[in-house]
Design a protein around this nucleic acid. Structure first.
Lengths: 209, 209, 209, 209
DNA sequence: GATGAATGAGTATTCATTCAT
DNA sequence: TATGAATGAATACTCATTCAT
């Protein structure tokens, strides 16, 4: 009596998560009811709770799904860099992915909702922290490589931990401004973000620290 | 004789807002019930709704109260600078105030909650945007003065609008990390924030832009 | 410390009743809040409850105000008849007054509301019954005179009590149709009501009964 | 397998409607709380709102339930008449049904409440109007048949539309008196109603009109 | 696996009325 | 006499979750 069709199971699971992500982005975590989600996903109440033990678990699963994408991106870039590609170019790819993601208002609203909810749901906070740690680790690796290779503008004494942390601050702030400041046009800020990160890398040498 | 005792009225209003801010920070905007708030404030249901037409209005009033503090700070600093004080020092005061505010987890959780709620409450979003605009305007004034006076490190061709916007990104990101990253110790990051802003001011000359 | 200006007092009392009648007709007895009424009347909460001990008393006062008008009409007609005027013509005046009153939708809705409320408020029911009894008594007097004088179409053996009661049925039914049946155009039914009452008077002779 | 047990579902639905009708008759539409209704019906809050989307929908469903009974009565009578039965006798059956219904004070109070509520709830008004139209149509059919067949007392030039409308006025007025006039004993007025309707049919010939 | 009927605690808000000034 | 701040019980409705089929 195991899962008859694992593919169908997985597909449905993803359909629920997609629907839930949309609902949460649209209405907020609390206002998005399980009824909204199951209607949007086209499944019954029973089915929804058959796939997930509760609403919090759905939120956590959404975070995990995003985490997979982040990890796939970082793994791909790491392979490129290992094959001789530019580490700084790879870092710029990461920033571009962030900007692209932030370009969709639904994404920023979803992130904001999950962040707010995580303040009260330590399990959700753990899932988000895991993704965050993966991103930090990925950026640290790229920064370390760039420093070791003395790629253009990279100081060999770079404090990679501090630099990655502050790139994280910039990314979070970028998301926040995208969500709240109507005058903040995401697309137009791409170049400025790249420039700031470059200057940040320059100012995080061990010496300064 | 419209209000019997305006002082008492105002005091009670503030007590409600303080209690509401605490509840929202603790439990989140939705989970903080009006019953929680009125209990914490020590008023009856009727009184709560006598002072505020609804929960959304309470959130907006909290934002306005914070806005007053921001404006007072900025006005004070503007007076100092007009009296010959250093504009860059004033800007550092602003950053210190941000860091001090972020040092209390309740403040960052409250900010996160209100930001998330603003995505669905356009009135609340308007109130937040007003405060934000005041902060941006204040920082632009300080940066312009610093540039005009050629204070240490300030480029006379500084793009004050872009610089202020990105300082805003850093402030928002700083708040987010404070809320979500358990490894991000607010106090220890004060110096790094100052340094980053300094480097940001350096990299925002009109020439580069 | 008696009422300083009785005229002003009375005027204000009537203003409150007019406002209350309008509110109740518009929104229904329960949905019309005392706040609605005091706002419409332009008085404060305290003043409202200074003039009336409660909402039920306001409803009863509205009924009494209407009762005064009914009594004035009947007294005037009785005087005419005593002075030699036609009793049947006076009865037709009563019917015309009913039709005119029913022509304003606000009046029919108000009557419906008060009738419904009276089912649960025995004091209000008593006030309505008093008006009703006055109307019945007035119509009985007119019918008795018409019968005694053998006015056109009036049978001397007329059962005035039964006839008056059934005219009451017709009046109530007329109000109900005016309130509920959108196809029931009050003005166009005036002649039919007169005709029906005439035929009713004819069919209520003691003989038939 | 949409509804597990349709019979049980329907039974429960009717139990809720019965309980609601009783509560509304007893306390009035507004004063009858959903808690009262669910308690009287013996179901939980959730179940009540699972069966009906809201209180207004319950009122509408009560009206529809009564409408079904009216239609069944009229259909049965129409069949009798088609099979050669007297149309005027059928009409008298309708009047008797009305009198029987009005004999229960709960019925008249319920009717009054729903009428008052319909003034503010256009959906409810629509449901009531539908029933009313069915009754009018049924009576018009009976009157037309009686006229065509020249049944006792029926004028072949009878204005069936006007006659039916005024029978409606009488029925509504009869209900109102039953509700408000404590001296109006429903049972004793049955014969008088029959007589009045008979005279009304006589006075509604096309010629007079 | 899939369904949807059933649950009942919880929510924001309203409202008639009181009473100190 | 007039005011309006204060009250708290009451209300319709929502929602995550369970479980029998």
């Amino acid at each position: 009596m195991r899962v008859v069709d694992p593919a169908r199971h997985d597909e449905r699971r993803r359909a629920i998560l997609r629907a839930a992500a949309r609902c949460i982005a649209d209405k907020g975590f609390h206002a998005a009811s399980t009824a909204d989600i199951r209607t949007a996903a086209g499944v019954s109440t029973g089915t929804l709770f058959h796939y997930f033990p509760g609403k919090q678990a759905i939120a956590a699963a959404i975070v995990d799904l995003e985490g997979e994408e982040v990890r796939e991106l970082l793994d791909g870039l790491a392979a490129d860099v290992a094959a001789g590609g530019s580490a700084l170019a790879a870092l710029r790819h990461v920033l571009d992915a962030v900007v692209d993601h932030a370009a969709d208002p639904a994404n920023v609203r979803l992130a904001l909702e999950l962040a707010a909810e995580a303040a009260r749901d330590s399990d959700l906070a753990r899932h988000i922290a895991r993704n965050d740690a993966a991103l930090q680790e990925g950026m640290r690796a790229l920064l370390a490589t760039a420093a070791a290779r003395r790629e253009a503008g990279a100081d060999p004494t770079l404090d990679v931990r501090a630099a990655a942390a502050w790139i994280g601050v910039l990314i979070d702030g970028f998301f926040n401004r995208a969500a709240l400041d109507p005058g903040f046009r995401v697309g137009e800020q791409r170049a400025a973000l790249h420039r700031l990160v470059a200057s940040l890398i320059g100012s995080c040498s061990m010496g300064v620290r």
